[in-house]
Design a protein around this nucleic acid. Sequence first.
RNA 1: UGUCCCAUAGUAUAAUGGUAGUACGACAGAUUUUGGUUCUGUUUGUCUUGGUUCGAAUCCAGGUGGGACAACCA
Length: 555
Amino acid sequence: MSEERSLNFLEQIVEEDIAKGVNGGRVHTRFPPEPNGYLHIGHAKSICLNFGLAKKYNGQTNLRFDDTNPVTEDTEYVESIKEDIKWLGYEWANELYASDYFEQLYQFAVTLIQKGLAYVDDSSAAEIAAMKGTPTEPGKNSPFRDRSVEENLRLFTEMREGKHPDGSKVLRAKVDMASPNMHLRDPLMYRIKHAHHHRTGNAWSIYPMYDFAHGQSDSIEHITHSICTLEFVQHRPLYDWFIEQLNIFPSHQYEFARLNMTYTVMSKRKLLQLVNEGHVTGWDDPRMPTISGYRRRGYTPSSIRHFAERIGVQKRDNLIDVGLLEFCIREELNKTANRVMAVLDPVKLVITNYPEGQTAELPAENNPEDESAGSRTVTFSNTLYIEREDFMEEPPKKFFRLGPGLAVRLKYAYIIKCDSFEKDADGNVTTIYCSYIPESLSGGDTSGLKVKGTIHWVSAAHAAKAEVRLYDRLFSVENPAAEEGDFKSFINPNSLEVVKEAYVEPVLLDAKPGDRFQFLRLGYFCADTDTVPGKPVFNRTVTLKDTWAKEAKKG
RNA sequence: UGUCCCAUAGUAUAAUGGUAGUACGACAGAUUUUGGUUCUGUUUGUCUUGGUUCGAAUCCAGGUGGGACAACCA
């Protein structure tokens, strides 16, 4: 019965540790965001990894905000991050903040000073950078490197007391200015910032650097497996150094490759730019790769979790095809979304042999993949709207839709044949005239006729109106971050098309924000938060697979 | 002229010294009252050169290629 699935490299590490009895077999992970932006799909990978690992091995996961830089952080971000994690379906064991440990971290720093392993440096940022050397040249010792323990203690106390201005002093670890690892060249531990912190207010005028806070925070929480992305590989020796010198709980860090996805960008800095410069409407714009963006777009938590599972985890750089994410949401929505008819680009169709004013309520199944979804009725009449795209004046050979002399089935209704059509002065088709076959009604077809195509429609007199927002990829190149020049110059100008008045089945008037549907033959749509009673707004989550579009493109 | 990480179909990811498999994509066909879904089939891969071994994607060495590191950011 056991499912034979191979383990990813993190699961292997955890299983080996459990087998060896490391930490008594305990597994405790954490997800450590900085509250300076919204979570994106790359964070979702990390969340699924950290929470998923703990869940699988009966462990726990902390949510810890690494809030060590008061000037970029905000409670708005804290709240959005918590909401997104919950929405993804995960529960944290403890909600914690690096700022909870500020006093403890301060004491750690004092301990290092006392051991002669940290010193106050009065050099400017530029001087420190200059003395740092380069990756291929060793650095130089700071002239302040050999201050006495007493002087260091006094100055560090004064820094805490706010007696020195921003930038005038820092506390550095005394490691090795000649180390080939840049992060070991006397890294900064504390800097002076007379800034208001979202949780500690004005209590502190010094704040620990990430490198001095992160590893010890994991240690304080007794995190067993500290999982992060590849760029921190070379920081690990420093974290291990602090842990060893302070003789505290040895958390171990393991690194994986961050998620990259085609046709999008995945850095908070770039996403912030898109928001601030108005290229999108906000962090939750449905075109954004943020979790809140995907939520608004109509993605489900499970589709994102399945995506995270399918992409796997490794240490090599990757660029995942966004098509895989789309596959994951289609796969789910195909089974769960009710079908409904909507015409986005309408053209009028008149059935000349169907009595004017007569109507019929025709049964329509809600979901062919799920019988329990039941059925509804749709109103039929002699005047309909169909999709403009479903009619061609001079159709090519394999066009299985409407054209002069061609026949199609109207979904849930009759087979019709096109007799004629009218155009306006500009050459646009204005009305299509058809005749219907009375014996061909769906469910009781005795006509013996076979048609290749079935199209969707709505009755002109009975249709409701809705706004529909059609989204396409935000960038027009596969890997905007890798292109030369400003990534914003690769923004897809057609990433959003708004249909102000689409004609839809009246049932959609009752749609509530978050409700998901398949608009037959068009795609999956989700009622937007802008929806108000009687005036629905729909976001296109993803199109259906369209083999005809592909065929047509081939020409 | 440094240190570290990495290298398997188009994209991801397995195979943990013993038959190179899976998913997505692509292509072809069947089914279909959604050109959807479903089903069947096809296609394409171990960066390179040596070494160890009865046997190497896997272990070792050299090369090549990609990535990371010089924020008082995280």
